[in-house]
């Protein structure tokens, strides 16, 4: 089933990129393009994703000016680029070990280990701890086409599904704008869905 794995990888990578940095006009255009909409609409056909996709599309369509993009960037900044447990921390460590209120803690080290033993590293232009959700999603994408079902299940259970619901809830309670609330909800729903598929397959 190589093509489904490629498709899964592409979706994980897309989600990763949405948490990795602010949405710009180029990405907006791609997502609103025919190809982009084709994909998003298909996702919306699945009940678990419908509401989130509707929200995301509504938000994307509302991005008319540079100012709109900046307002969305301010949302991104306040959620993911500052603070810790009081904003929507994007780091696995904050959810897996909440008493450890540090950055670059144990989960960062664990992820670093995982990455380097698979001959991967963080991009120089992404100077973040390795337990950032964008990294974990990107690595999951990598596993889709490089690892067997068992290994994928193992990683997703250890590093993603165990905290993404809490993360989504955190984004939900802090995002006034609505876009990232929807992206986080979509991500959590997709991980759930994908886990079920993988479990069936294994």
């Amino acid at each position: 089933m190589t093509t489904i794995n490629t498709a899964r990888a592409q979706f994980y990578r897309l989600l990763s990129s949405l948490f990795a940095k602010e949405v710009d006009s180029a990405l907006t255009a791609e997502l609103l393009s025919e190809k982009g909409q084709g994909f998003l609409q298909h996702l919306a056909s699945e009940a678990a994703f419908a509401q989130a996709i509707e929200q995301i599309n509504a938000q994307l369509n509302a991005l008319k000016t540079e100012q709109d993009i900046l307002v969305l960037s301010a949302d991104f900044c306040g959620l993911f680029l500052v603070g810790g447990k009081h904003s929507a921390s994007p780091y696995a460590g904050h959810y897996m070990e909440p008493e450890q209120s540090v950055l670059f803690g144990r989960y960062h080290q664990k992820m670093q280990q995982v990455l380097s033993s698979n001959e991967l590293a963080l991009h120089a232009n992404f100077p973040e701890p390795a337990d950032h959700i964008a990294v974990i999603l990107a690595y999951t994408a990598h596993l889709c086409t490089q690892a067997d079902t068992q290994e994928q299940l193992s990683f997703i259970n250890d590093f993603l599904s165990s905290w993404i619901n809490d993360f989504s809830a955190q984004v939900s309670s802090h995002d006034a704008g609505g876009f990232y609330r929807a992206v986080a909800a979509l991500s959590a729903a997709w991980v759930r869905y994908d886990l079920e598929c993988l479990s069936e397959a294994s």
Partner: peptide, 18 residues
């Protein structure tokens, strides 16, 4: 998903080979 899947070219990538 296979049929409609796409890659956003402008999307950020966070991983790179060691």
């Amino acid at each position: 998903m296979i049929a409609t899947s796409f890659t956003a070219i402008s999307a950020a990538s966070v991983l790179t080979p060691l």
